[in-house]
Simulated scan of single mutants.
Amino acid sequence: MKLIKPAHIRGNKVMKKLSTFILLIAGIACGAPPVMAETAASATGHANKKSASKKVAAAHKHEAQEIDEKEPDTSGLQPIAFNCELGNKITIYSRTNDDQQIALHWNKHTHLMTRVGTTTGAQRFENAQSGLVWIGIPAKGMLLDSKHGRQLANECRNADQAAQKVAEKS
């Protein structure tokens, strides 16, 4: 024997779905953050589906981070050693035919850095995952931590830049 729910009970489910949809659309139109959509979804019982999809998305993001965190292979690349203030040392590995990426070795780790265009002519390379930013100008280079807003190494010079600075002082 099949039980049929009264129309007013079936209608409540439809109304909840409709109100959730309206809240979601209104939130998007107003520029509300996605949290509002999650709250509306949990009110209708769809939270389990959402949380399962969030777990899958988080697992994929974690896998992508593991790939990003692997240190790049520097074999076959040309190293340039930099001596910085306070005894910091940085090595930059690059290809002669590729000026869009470098590998930067600092603090016992090597990070893949990608060129970012500038209007000043300075060489700027960033790694969004670690927050590292390398800025190179003809006289020196500096390493910044964009996540914490601080300098990590300054007055970094390779052998040619150091020799030029000594020559300028003489």
Rank of each mutant, 00 (worst) to 15 (best):
S170G: 12
I137Y: 13
R124K: 15
D145L: 02
G31E: 05
H60Y: 07
H46I: 00
T74R: 08
E66D: 05
G141P: 00
L24A: 12
L18H: 12
N88D: 11
Q129Y: 07
E63S: 03
V56W: 07
G117H: 13
A40E: 06
D99Q: 01
T44A: 12
I135Q: 13
A41W: 10
S42C: 09
L24W: 11
A64C: 00
L23D: 15
A43S: 13
A57T: 02
D99E: 05
D99Y: 01
M113T: 01
F21H: 12
L77R: 05
K16A: 15
T119W: 11
Q151S: 13
A153P: 00
I22A: 11
H62M: 04
G45W: 03
I67T: 08
M15R: 15
A163R: 10
I25E: 10
E69W: 07
D73G: 05
A64P: 00
I9N: 08
E66H: 04
A47P: 07
G27E: 07
F125D: 11
C84E: 02
R10P: 00
L132E: 13
H148T: 06
F21P: 02
G31W: 02
F125H: 06
L24F: 10
S146N: 08
L3Y: 12
L23A: 11
T114C: 06
K61N: 06
T114D: 14
I28L: 09
Q151P: 00
F82G: 01
V116R: 15
A37G: 15
A41Q: 14
A159H: 08
A40C: 07
E155A: 14
K50S: 08
Q78T: 12
E85L: 04
V133T: 09
Q100H: 08
E38Y: 10
H109T: 14
L77P: 04
P72Y: 07
C156I: 01
S19Q: 14
S19V: 04
A81R: 13
A153Y: 00
T74V: 06
A32V: 01
H60V: 00
M142G: 11
K16H: 15
T110N: 11
A37S: 15
L144A: 03
A162N: 05
G31Q: 02
S146D: 09
A52V: 04
A29Q: 12
M1R: 14
I9Y: 15
H111M: 02
I4T: 15
A37Y: 10
A47E: 14
A81F: 08
P138K: 04
G117Q: 14
A40W: 09
S75M: 03
I137D: 14
F125P: 00
F21C: 08
S75W: 02
W106P: 07
N107W: 08
A128G: 05
G121F: 09
G117R: 09
S51E: 10
A103Y: 09
H111S: 11
T114S: 15
A26E: 13
A81K: 12
A37Q: 13
T110E: 10
A29D: 10
I28T: 06
I28S: 11
M1P: 15
N158C: 01
S130M: 07
G141E: 01
